[in-house]
Simulated scan of single mutants.
Amino acid sequence: MKLLVVGATGTLGRQIARRALDEGHQVRCLVRNLRKAAFLKEWGAELVKGDLCQPDTLPPALKDIEAIIDAATARATDTLNIREIDWDGKVSLIQAAVAADIQRYIFFSILNAEQFPNVPLMDIKHCTEKFLAESGLNYTILRPCGFMQGLIGQYAIPILDNRVVWVTGESTPIAYMDTIDIAKFAVRALELPQTEQKTFPVVGTRAWSADEIVNLCERLSGQNAKISRVPMGVLRTIRRIAGWLQWGRNVADRLAFAEVLASGKPLDASMEETYKSFEFDPKEVTTVEAYLQEYFTRIMKKLKEIGYEREKQKQKKKQQSFFK
């Protein structure tokens, strides 16, 4: 199948592109910066320059395309805000897909998006779900809630570097899933009629609180974490201040997500129907324990190797200075 991956340079999008290529699909990627997306071309994908916020660039990108996997979303560092990318841009893409008679549209939303109308990203994702469902396209909506890849920067690296791990005062458990596994669901949806016109949660084997993740990282690394808890009141104040500044509005919208984390409602769901519909064995899903164990095993081995090489260099220098 010839498909267009949108958001292919992101954490999830690159795994989707890789998986689709590995399964023999012809993959085209809509990218804003061809240089930054060069690795996708090396993998075998076709690159086409375009932007969700420039509707006239979308029809050429959709020429001869049969399916779209849409994993794009605004980043905190983007100059445009969430509404411009995740709503205006997605509406343009869906309308262009209708005009191009696209056969399948796979969209990534967020779990429980409808429960948080006051959180911009959640509200926009929910509105996009409804817009897509009413578009007439043959869609599948996938709703993850957290990527395991994010645990490395938020927890693992600070603990290894003996830096502070920042967590909110309140901690909502999150069922993290490896983006490699999420990509499998997205690509598999293209070939399974039973996934059409439906919405599915795509979450990990269990929900983890911040404290549980910290404890696991401490055990696997053999190091103690320095934890600093940020009260929700402080985050709300920062959000209000950022919202007053033109450059800070996207950051403010992202900070609003802290309200989800402070809700006390676990970001988790039953995967029984998802596994059945996608003909997926739950045993194939990576667990948080296995993911972090692999990371720490690999990084600790690397650190030991670096330490060994440094010691060799020191000994070599001592020997050289001795004979001078």
Rank of each mutant, 00 (worst) to 15 (best):
M271W: 00
I213D: 07
R239Q: 15
W247I: 10
R163F: 10
Y176R: 01
S171W: 05
Q246A: 14
E196A: 13
I238H: 09
V230F: 14
L160M: 13
K198I: 07
T237I: 14
T205I: 14
G222P: 09
R240G: 05
A210S: 13
S263L: 09
Q197A: 10
S221Q: 06
A225W: 00
E170F: 11
I180S: 13
N162V: 04
N215E: 12
L267D: 04
R163E: 14
S171Q: 15
P158A: 04
F280E: 08
V260K: 08
T172Q: 12
K265D: 09
A262T: 06
S277W: 11
R236C: 08
S209Q: 09
I157W: 09
N215F: 12
K198D: 09
S209W: 13
A225N: 02
G204H: 02
S209A: 14
V203C: 02
R239D: 07
D181I: 02
G204S: 04
F257H: 06
K226N: 07
I157A: 10
E272G: 00
G204N: 03
R249V: 12
V230N: 05
I241A: 11
Q223V: 04
I213N: 02
T179Y: 01
P158E: 05
Y275P: 00
D253F: 13
L255P: 01
I213E: 10
R229H: 10
F200H: 03
A186H: 04
V164K: 14
P193N: 03
T274K: 00
R239L: 12
T195V: 15
D211N: 10
R163P: 04
N250E: 08
R254S: 12
V164Y: 10
K226S: 09
V260Q: 06
I180P: 01
R188N: 13
L255R: 00
T205P: 04
P266D: 04
V165A: 01
A207Y: 06
